[in-house]
Design a protein around this nucleic acid. Structure first.
Length: 681
RNA sequence: GCGCCUGUAGCUCAGAAGGAUAGAGCAGCGGUUUCCUAAACCGUUGGUCGGGGGUUCGAUUCCCUCCAGGCGCACCA
């Protein structure tokens, strides 16, 4: 609701300034006064105006306050401090809008077309780990934010099924385990059979159910991705000890790229099976996808050829004839000044042996995402499961929807790849696709490392120097890290113990139904509460905490609000019904006079503003912070304001409304974070 | 060497396009339960915002410089 008021105010201020002072105001900033009694919205533009008009900011503010016609929805404006303008909104009007569950009209799609958000993108050769979870949580939350705003969003999870990491595992099956593709497929079928048997026995659960494993069951016993986790570490070790064996990798890569051979079949079997595991893992975290674009189709459908032609034709790349890159097609980056003089600032796109680098493939893929390639994939469903994503293919299903061709692309990729992402954008610009380049957003985030204490808990022995450092990097290659599923298992177990202590009367299944959303809520919140470019030094004890600034804290506030409404019986239920009509009852303005209550309403009303801010800055952490603040304000209210014991019926109804509104907004904020509200806590 | 990021309380982090007394969580200390369940609440200790310059009426925020840390700069992805 406040978002629409902000927009309206901004516009009115710009018009007024033009009329009254003949000045054009760009970007009218709207802030929050430090204390709620000072007002609801603070505008500091008089300070800027003071410079331009060469007048005192305070005098300008007073002049403005005296003659500015207040837009609809505002009660008054005050000049404050040394030149602030503090606006007070009509409290009951804001509250009525919330109680009417009316969508904030300020929340509008602004991208002007379809958006693709690409995230997760895990190499399909081993189990997902904690770092992958951060990527998925960020991407998925951003998707939810965009959809909340009404944007048309397509979620893609890119599968590099022909890359080095898959090649390594394929080579391990081939050269270390001496398995052929038929044997591997049989093995994978065996894993799947075992999983299904355990599911039937109730020893494990199928997502989206998230039950703990039965006693004596380990994931390693039935998970192919766990098996590959170890195998990948094993062959990486082998390469280190016997560097000659690296020839396997090169041969495997070439064979996979060429296709139609035993190694390619091995790689395909590995990648497909692991993708299935990853989808399952992400499903536990409430993450889903529309499309899985695969590198194999980018190769088979010759996406690169189309991009290559364009790049050559436009002169974006050129064939190097001399120097260390002789025989390669390179792209000049032109970022360095001429003083370097060496002409060294170029990037290899096609190697001298004719194969394409990652950047080259990514330019082609990025062009496709933005509808600029002139080629398309075919599609089929990944599986027959309901809600299964689509996957690219060389031949298509008849009922396949269309994908790609977006106006905006957000690539959730870690900060270490910033340089490469810049090159991809430079490639688009070199092709004359200025707008495509500007609409290709690198949604950059820092990695997740482990705190030294956590690393030692996992059995890594650290040198004294390493122990002094802030963090220890995880390594898939070394098989060192926390697997995503293990972490979720631990969290569910830990939440289960808490639930059991609080709800001993419930049976085990009912307890688990509560523990699951709490555990996942704790995890997602933990991954989202840090701003993107803060490196997370993951600490198990901290992540397992359910108190303080955590997901469960927010969930608990929502549950408490629900408890009041439930115990309020019919009155409580009535408060949850959308308020009929636009007008607020007369006494509401009176009830909202105490700032403690208004503070809660005002905060609840800010959800859309915060969501908008989170989108504009691509910073989901703002939303997480907000959810926590709202929960905090509610807990505060909960303690000092008895609701059901309120004797005055009118005020009681009002307070119940307030509880209902807060609960609804807490749930909405949590939903945007991908977190569910448990029935009880 | 070049580029990007980071440096705020004991620890982990917020401080949105400069602005009103720099905030939270954890940890510490001291309180609050015949209740709308304490996964909560209240109080309290704790800061030269890495150092130094500059721009500005005003700088944690912008610019320069130095210091410290991280990450990038392949015919790997």
């Amino acid at each position: 609701m406040l978002l629409a008021l902000e927009e309206r105010l901004r516009q009115a201020v710009v018009e007024f300034a033009a009329r009254h002072w003949q000045v054009e105001l760009a970007n009218v900033a709207i802030e929050q006064p430090p204390r709620p009694e000072l007002g609801d919205l603070a505008l500091p533009f008089c300070f800027e105006l003071a410079r331009r008009l060469r007048r005192a900011p305070r005098a300008l503010a007073q002049e403005f306050a005296a003659s500015f016609p207040l837009p609809e929805g505002f009660a008054r404006v005050e000049a404050a401090g040394s030149g602030y303008l503090n606006f007070f909104v009509r409290r009951s009007q804001v509250f009525a809008a919330l109680a009417g569950q009316r969508r904030d009209p300020g929340l509008q799609p602004r991208l002007g077309g379809k958006a693709i958000v690409e995230h997760t993108n895990i190499n399909p050769n081993k189990a997902a780990h904690i770092g992958h979870l951060r990527n998925a949580a960020l991407g998925d939350t951003f998707v939810r934010l965009l959809r909340y705003r009404g944007e048309n969003v397509e979620v893609q999870n890119y599968i590099d099924n022909t890359g080095v990491q898959v090649a390594d595992v394929a080579a391990a099956f081939e050269h270390v385990l001496h398995q052929d593709a038929a044997a591997l497929r049989a093995e994978i079928a065996g894993w799947e059979e075992k999983r299904q048997r355990l599911e039937r026995e109730g020893a494990i659960s199928a997502p989206p159910q998230n039950l703990p494993l039965a006693a004596g069951v380990t994931r390693a016993a039935y998970s192919f991705d766990y098996r590959c986790w170890d195998l990948y570490a094993q062959i990486s070790r082998h390469y280190e000890e016997q560097p000659d064996a690296l020839a396997w990798r090169g041969a495997a890569l070439a064979a996979i790229e060429h296709g139609g051979n035993e190694t390619a079949a091995l790689a395909e079997a590995v990648a497909d099976a692991i993708v299935t595991c990853h989808l399952r893992t992400m499903r536990r975290l409430n993450v889903a996808y529309d499309l899985l674009p695969r590198e194999s189709e980018i190769l088979r459908l010759h996406f690169w050829d189309a991009a290559f032609e364009r790049l050559k034709r436009s002169g974006a790349i050129r064939r190097e004839t001399a120097g260390k890159n002789a025989g390669c097609w390179v792209m000049d980056l032109g970022t360095a000044g001429p003083e370097e003089g060496e002409g060294e600032d170029s990037k290899v796109i096609v190697r001298s042996n004719g194969t394409v680098t990652y950047v080259g493939k990514d330019i082609a893929y990025q062009l496709w995402k933005l509808g600029k390639l002139g080629r398309d994939f075919h599609y089929r469903r990944w599986s027959s499961a309901p809600g299964a994503p689509w996957v690219t293919d060389t031949e298509g299903a008849a009922d396949a929807p269309s994908f790609g061709g977006a106006r905006w692309v957000f690539n959730v990729i870690d900060a270490r790849q910033a340089y490469l992402q810049d090159i991809v954008a430079a490639g688009l610009r070199a092709l004359g696709e200025q707008e495509a380049a500007e609409h290709s957003v690198h949604f950059s985030y820092e990695m997740v490392a482990l705190s030294p204490r956590c690393a030692e808990q996992l059995g890594l022995s650290l040198s004294p120097e390493a122990r002094q450092r802030a963090h220890v990097e995880v390594s898939g290659r070394k098989g060192f890290g926390i697997k995503a599923d293990d972490l979720m298992d631990q969290l569910i177990q830990s939440a289960g113990r808490e639930v059991q202590a609080r709800h001993p009367e419930r049976d085990e299944a009912a307890q688990l139904a509560l523990a699951e959303p709490i555990a996942i809520g704790a995890l997602r919140y933990f991954l989202l509460k840090f701003t993107k470019n803060a490196l997370i030094a993951f600490d198990l004890d901290e992540a397992l905490s359910f108190e303080g600034e955590t997901g469960p804290y927010v969930q608990y506030a929502a549950v408490r609000a629900g408890n009041i409404l439930r115990k309020g019986g019919e009155e409580g239920a009535a408060a949850e019904q959308p308020l009929a009509g636009a007008a607020a009852p007369d006494d509401w303005e009176h009830y909202l006079e105490p700032n403690e209550l208004w503070e809660l309403v005002q905060l609840a009303a800010r959800l859309e503003s915060v969501a908008e801010q989170a989108i504009v800055t691509t910073e989901p952490a703002y939303l997480a912070k907000y959810a926590f603040q709202l929960a905090q304000a509610f807990n505060n209210f909960y303690h000092r304001t008895p609701v059901l014991a309120e004797a005055d019926a009118g005020r009681r109804a009002f307070l119940l409304r307030l509880v209902a509104v807060t609960r609804q907004r807490l749930a909405a904020a949590l939903d945007l974070l991908g977190i569910a509200v448990p029935e009880a806590m």
